[in-house]
Simulated scan of single mutants.
Amino acid sequence: MPQDPMVQLTLFTQAVEALGGQRGTARILGIEESALRRRLAGEEALDSTILRDIARALIDHADRCRKIERKLSPAFSENLTAEQAERFGGG
């Protein structure tokens, strides 16, 4: 069953928010902020190119977030400072 256009627009809007808002997303996608606003308002159709580009941007963003999380998470003892390790019984 094809995607409902309103559902797709809602998901697109959520993607823009996840990527840091309109200005940042427009920069990431290499389009004018006004063009992005027209798409968000439903005044301009979401074509397969913009959907592909935002999907790639979301993957890149998620990959960067995962890498940072793995360096910050206290679940990995190597991420703790000596003081933190002592406090949490790891040192």
Rank of each mutant, 00 (worst) to 15 (best):
M1G: 12
M1C: 09
P5I: 05
P5Y: 07
P5E: 08
M6Y: 10
V7W: 05
V7A: 09
V7F: 05
Q8K: 15
T10S: 02
T10E: 05
L11R: 08
L11H: 04
F12A: 02
T13G: 13
T13A: 13
T13N: 12
Q14T: 00
A15S: 07
A15T: 00
V16I: 12
V16R: 03
E17T: 07
E17V: 05
E17I: 05
A18E: 10
A18V: 04
A18R: 11
L19N: 01
L19T: 01
L19E: 01
G20M: 13
G20R: 04
G20D: 08
G21I: 08
G21M: 12
G24N: 14
G24D: 15
T25F: 03
T25C: 12
T25Y: 05
A26P: 04
A26N: 03
R27E: 14
I28W: 02
L29Y: 04
G30T: 02
G30P: 06
I31G: 00
I31D: 00
E33N: 09
E33W: 00
S34K: 10
S34A: 11
A35Q: 13
L36H: 06
R37M: 02
R37Q: 04
R37H: 03
R37A: 05
R38S: 09
R38N: 08
R39V: 03
R39E: 04
A41L: 10
A41G: 07
G42W: 07
G42D: 08
G42N: 10
G42P: 06
E43L: 11
A45L: 12
A45D: 15
A45P: 12
A45S: 14
L46Y: 11
D47P: 08
S48W: 09
T49Q: 10
I50G: 04
R52N: 14
R52F: 10
R52H: 13
R52A: 13
D53H: 04
D53G: 01
I54K: 05
R56E: 06
R56P: 01
L58Q: 07
I59T: 04
D60Q: 05
D60T: 01
D63H: 02
R64Q: 13
R64D: 12
I68C: 10
I68Y: 09
E69C: 09
R70M: 13
R70S: 11
K71E: 07
K71Q: 14
L72K: 09
S73D: 06
S73V: 02
S73Q: 06
S73G: 11
P74I: 05
F76C: 13
S77D: 14
E78C: 06
N79F: 07
L80Q: 12
L80T: 10
A82D: 11
Q84H: 15
Q84K: 13
Q84I: 10
A85Q: 06
R87Y: 13
R87C: 08
R87L: 14
F88T: 13
F88N: 08
G89V: 10
G91L: 15
G91D: 13
G91A: 15
G91M: 13
